[in-house]
Amino acid sequence: MAATLLIDAIKSAVILGGVLTAFAYVTLLERRLLARFQLRVGPNRVGPLGLLQPLADGIKLIFKEHFVPAGADRLVYLVAPLITVVAALFVYAVIPIGPPVRLFGREVTLYVADVNIGVLLVLAASSIGVYGIILGGWASDNKYALLGGLRSSAQVISYELALGLAVLGVVLAAGSLSLVDIVRAQSHLWFIVTQPAAFVLFLIAAFAETNRAPFDLPEAEQELIAGYQTEYGGFTFAMFYLGEYVGVITMGALITTLFLGGWQGPLLPPVLWFLIKVFAVVCVFIWVRATLPRLRYDQLMALGWRVLVPAGLLNLAVTALVIVARG
């Protein structure tokens, strides 16, 4: 019992450490890739190829002055970034990185837990994250921040349904809510092949859920300064930043798990396959940011409600029909 708990604590620490390292380097990847898309070079001075840039950024942000605006609600102002970070990290409790391996004569699973409602847990955690944004926007007592927070909630109520409906298609095809079972169900054919509509739905909804371009209205810098982050500085700002980028990695990991066969692939070790797929999806996120202009607020809600939700319902009905017809 004590040994299993110890293994679990170590595993948790390794996964969290991995996620945080990945976060640091996704920020660098984004800056470098965006620079390339815009025919610039990007940050390349700190360390070889700019690889120490995230470290320098982190140290800088820790040593920045910390203050709470006089008008702000102090408690909520400080709790809001915490909620965002915890919700973003929590998802990794159930995401399977690889199949069980034997380490030191012991069967070790490469996920923290395999709960039977993994998918629901992930969806719940990812929507809790938005509370941090809304509360942060409200608590700042800043008009731009408030507008950013409200926009964020508008986005969630428009795209959560599409996300849920897309996942339902996968759950139907796999017959289980456990993420490990869903990965196993794709050993012959990835769900991106059998559920292409759900994949597209999920991808679009994922952009909106993570507040990424073309749905980055909550922090539209041309309109709202920095949106909900306007009154945040130093490390509390970095925490919101972390929430956003961990969210992107989470969506990458989820798309990998639900549609791209998770850790499965030929030749290379499973964990490496998982990382390669997540990396590819994160690159797509950055690519889309460099390509598409931002939608208008009402266009965004119209797209969610009038296109994605009906499409999701239709996809669900067709999937169900096929599955029942084939027995």
């Binding site: 708990l5 679990d8 604590a9 948790s12 620490a13 996964i15 969290l16 945080l20 820790i62 910390h66 400080l78 915490l82 970070v85 915890v86 990290l89 929590f90 990794y92 409790a93 159930v94 923290v112 837990a113 709960v115 847990l121 130093g234 490390f235 509390t236 970095a238 925490m239």
Partner: peptide, 20 residues
């Protein structure tokens, strides 16, 4: 395990606030 993970995550998130 999920609970342990959540607690470790919360501590990890709150620690920087203490540091700053």
């Amino acid at each position: 395990y999920v609970a342990v993970f959540a607690i470790v995550g919360a501590i990890l998130a709150a620690l920087p606030l203490l540091v700053i």
